Amino acid sequence: VIAMPSVRKYAREKGVDIRLVQGTGKNGRVLKEDIDAFLAGGA
């Protein structure tokens, strides 16, 4: 999974398994917005 360390930390704090999140950034990078969208109700 491609993600910046700050995004990985954010996901950990929110209790999200970053491997389950679909990245929308360049080359499938997971963004902070992707974590929020995942929490809001889905992949």
Rank of each mutant, 00 (worst) to 15 (best):
T24D: 02
V7S: 03
G23M: 02
I35K: 00
V21L: 07
K14F: 07
K14S: 07
E33Y: 10
A37H: 11
A40P: 05
L20R: 12
K26Q: 11
K9W: 11
R29V: 08
Y10T: 02
E33P: 08
N27C: 10
I35Q: 00
A40R: 14
I18T: 03
A11W: 02
D17W: 05
P5N: 12
G23S: 04
R19N: 12
A43S: 13
Q22M: 13
L20I: 09
V30M: 03
K14Y: 07
E33H: 12
K9Y: 08
G28M: 06
V1A: 08
V21S: 01
G28W: 05
Y10Q: 02
T24R: 06
G28K: 07
K9L: 11
F38D: 02
E13Q: 14
D36L: 06
G41F: 14
A11C: 06
I2E: 08
L31W: 05
V21D: 00
K32H: 09
G28T: 04
N27I: 05
R29S: 11
D36N: 07
A37T: 12
L20Y: 11
L20M: 13
S6L: 09
V21Q: 01
N27W: 12
A37E: 09
V1I: 13
A43Y: 14
K9H: 09
I2D: 09
G28P: 02
G28D: 04
A3V: 08
V16M: 03
T24S: 13
D17S: 06
F38N: 03
R8N: 05
V1T: 10
G28Q: 06
Y10F: 04
I2H: 08
Y10L: 04
K26F: 12
A3Y: 04
G25M: 03
S6W: 14
K9A: 11
Q22S: 13
V7L: 05
R29L: 11
V16Y: 01
I2T: 10
F38H: 09
V30E: 00
G23H: 03
E13I: 12
R12N: 13
G41K: 11
A3M: 05
L20S: 09
G15N: 10
R29Y: 08
R19I: 07
D34I: 01
Q22V: 14
I18D: 01
D17L: 06
G23D: 01
K26P: 15
K9D: 15
K32E: 06
G42D: 12
A37Y: 10
E33S: 15
I18R: 01
D34A: 00
K14H: 12
A43P: 13
V1E: 07
L39Q: 06
K26Y: 12
A3F: 03
E13W: 10
R8D: 06
S6P: 07
I2F: 05
A3I: 09
V16R: 00
N27L: 09
Q22I: 14
I35W: 00
L39H: 06
R8K: 11
S6F: 09
R29N: 08
I2P: 07
A37G: 08
G25W: 02
A43V: 13
E33A: 14
T24E: 02
I18N: 00
A37S: 11
V16T: 03
I2G: 06
T24Y: 03
G42F: 14
D17K: 05
A37P: 01
G23Q: 03
K32D: 04
A40S: 12
K9N: 10
K14R: 13
V7A: 05
P5R: 15
A43K: 14
V30A: 03
R19Y: 09
L39A: 07
G25L: 03
E33N: 10
G42N: 14
A40K: 12
G25V: 02
V7C: 04
G25S: 04
A40M: 14
D36Y: 04
K32Q: 08
S6D: 14
K9C: 08
D17R: 04
L39I: 14
G25A: 05
N27K: 11
R12E: 15
G25F: 02
R12F: 15
G25T: 03
G15R: 08
A11E: 00
V7F: 02
L20P: 01
N27S: 09
Q22E: 10
M4F: 15
F38T: 04
R8W: 15
Q22F: 12
G15V: 04
R29W: 10
G41N: 15
I35P: 00
V30S: 00
E33L: 10
V7P: 03
I35F: 00
G42H: 14
K32W: 08
G23E: 02
L31S: 09
N27G: 14
D36C: 05
V21N: 00
L20Q: 12
I35S: 00
L39V: 10
V21W: 03
A37Q: 10
D36K: 05
L39F: 07
Y10P: 01
E13N: 11
Q22A: 12
G28A: 06
A11F: 02
D36T: 05
G25K: 03
R12T: 13
S6H: 12
V16A: 04
I35T: 00
V21P: 03
A40G: 10
P5A: 15
V16I: 10
T24M: 05
R8V: 15
L39T: 06
V21E: 00
R29F: 08
K14N: 11
F38S: 04
I2K: 08
Y10D: 02
T24L: 04
V16Q: 01
Q22P: 12
R8P: 03
A37M: 12
Y10S: 02
G28E: 04
I18F: 04
A11S: 05
V30W: 02
M4L: 15
V30F: 01
V30N: 00
D34N: 06
L31N: 07
R8L: 15
G42A: 14
V7R: 01
V30P: 02
K26E: 12
L31A: 04
L39N: 05
G41E: 12
A43M: 14
V30G: 00
G28N: 08
V7I: 09
A11K: 01
G15T: 04
K26D: 10
A40V: 12
K14Q: 11
A11P: 01
R12L: 15
A37R: 14
G15L: 06
K9E: 14
V1Q: 09
I2V: 11
A11M: 01
G25E: 02
R12Q: 15
Y10K: 02
V30Q: 02
G41D: 13
A43Q: 14
R12D: 12
V1P: 10
G15E: 06
D34V: 00
D17F: 05
L39G: 04
R19K: 11
K26I: 12
M4N: 15
G25D: 03
I2C: 08
G23L: 02
S6Q: 10
E33F: 09
Y10I: 03
G42W: 11
R8G: 04
K32C: 07
V7Y: 02
R19G: 09
R19E: 11
S6M: 08
L31M: 11
G15P: 00
I35D: 00
D17N: 09
P5K: 15
I2W: 03
F38W: 12
V1F: 06
K32L: 11
V21R: 01
K9G: 06
N27F: 12
A43H: 14
K14V: 10
D34C: 01
N27R: 10
N27V: 05
G42E: 13
Q22D: 08
R8I: 15
L39W: 07
K26L: 13
K32G: 04
V21A: 03
L20V: 10
A3C: 07
V16F: 02
A11H: 01
I2Y: 05
R19T: 12
V1R: 06
R29M: 13
G15Y: 06
Q22L: 13
A11T: 01
L31P: 00
K14G: 03
G42P: 13
A3R: 05
Y10G: 01
I35N: 00
V21C: 06
R8F: 15
R19L: 09
E33M: 12
R19Q: 09
L20N: 10
K32N: 06
M4V: 12
M4D: 15
E13R: 13
A40Q: 13
V30Y: 01
I2S: 09
P5S: 13
L31F: 08
D36H: 04
V16G: 00
K14C: 08
P5D: 13
G42L: 14
V30L: 05
R29D: 07
V21Y: 01
G23Y: 02
R8Y: 14
F38I: 07
L20F: 11
K32F: 10
Y10A: 03
R12Y: 15
V1Y: 05
R12M: 15
V21G: 00
R12C: 09
P5H: 12
G23N: 03
G25H: 03
M4Q: 14
A11N: 00
T24N: 05
T24I: 02
M4W: 15
D34S: 02
G28I: 02
G15F: 07
I18L: 10
L39E: 05
G42I: 15
K14I: 06
K14W: 08
K32T: 07
A3S: 08
G42K: 13
K9I: 09
V21T: 03
P5Q: 12
